[in-house]
Design a protein around this nucleic acid. Structure first.
Lengths: 137, 137
DNA sequence: CTTGACCTTAAAGTGAGCTTTAAAGTTAGA
DNA sequence: TCTAACTTTAAAGCTCACTTTAAGGTCAAG
């Protein structure tokens, strides 16, 4: 498979695929007689895995450490640990977001409860202060 | 309040606080006779808001558009719109995170299901393939 | 009156994750 | 055979979010 086809199949730009090769992230590539890159079908899987990993919050360096050069060289324990750590990270973020959201909706309710009888600037100040001060986690 | 104290209070570096001012994100600052920056207590609130917003996935540019120049300049309607927008953004982020987490836990379950009895390379290949295919959203 | 901890600035540097550019070679189709 | 759409490279450029550097000014304590 040439780079153009791989690019289309994965939705990534060719330059991005070459870049991943440059930094040692995508090693599954050979060269044809004309110098063109030639990819095995597994390259598509690995690229999808890279995109997945990025979406899950892994940096390219982290992925480089996690991904095997070839599919059979994969370290189980290491990967599992990393995945578990990432899930925990996500859980922390979820908790934080839930808290932020809850806080915002509470503030909205509070504002709705005090419509136009209170001074607007004072109300805004009060509300913002509450937002800010609760942020010291 | 001088910049050093504000830095300590917020846990941010002084250079970061100056940088936020440079890009027009933190406008609540005056100058003393000696040229030193002087911050009102509200600056701490705003900086906490900025940190909050970043943690929730907002870029500094987005925050710049969202945050008021001064606290009293926030109009009631504007405030409500911004908060509602933020809640919606948080909901989007929550959905994204849930998806990522679900993906990772699925992968973990997949690996745990076939421990050491299966050929390692084949297991890796199978798991990777599933990850890859689940990524075509 | 000196020391050291603060504060100031503009400009350059950093690192991640790319894209763009330029100049060239290759190939498939009409 | 010509053309258009590929492919190659190294190097430079870009955005974001900062930090670092260099060269200086201010201030409180001893």
């Amino acid at each position: 498979m040439k780079i153009g086809e791989l690019a289309k199949r994965t939705g990534l730009s060719a330059s991005k695929i070459r870049f991943y090769e440059d930094i040692g992230l995508l090693k599954m590539v050979e060269r044809k007689a004309n110098g063109y890159r030639s990819y095995p079908k597994e390259a598509e899987v690995v690229l999808n895995l890279i995109v997945s990993g990025q979406q899950a919050g892994f940096s390219l360096d982290e992925l480089k450490a996690l991904l095997p050069a070839d599919l059979s060289g994969w370290q189980h324990a290491h990967l599992i640990d990393a995945l578990k750590q990432k899930v925990m990270d996500i859980e922390q973020l979820q908790a934080k977001l839930a808290e932020n959201k809850q806080r915002l909706t509470a503030i909205l309710a509070e504002i709705d409860a005090k419509p136009d009888d209170m001074d607007c600037a004072d109300n805004a100040k009060r509300v913002l202060t509450q937002m800010g001060l609760k942020n010291d986690k």
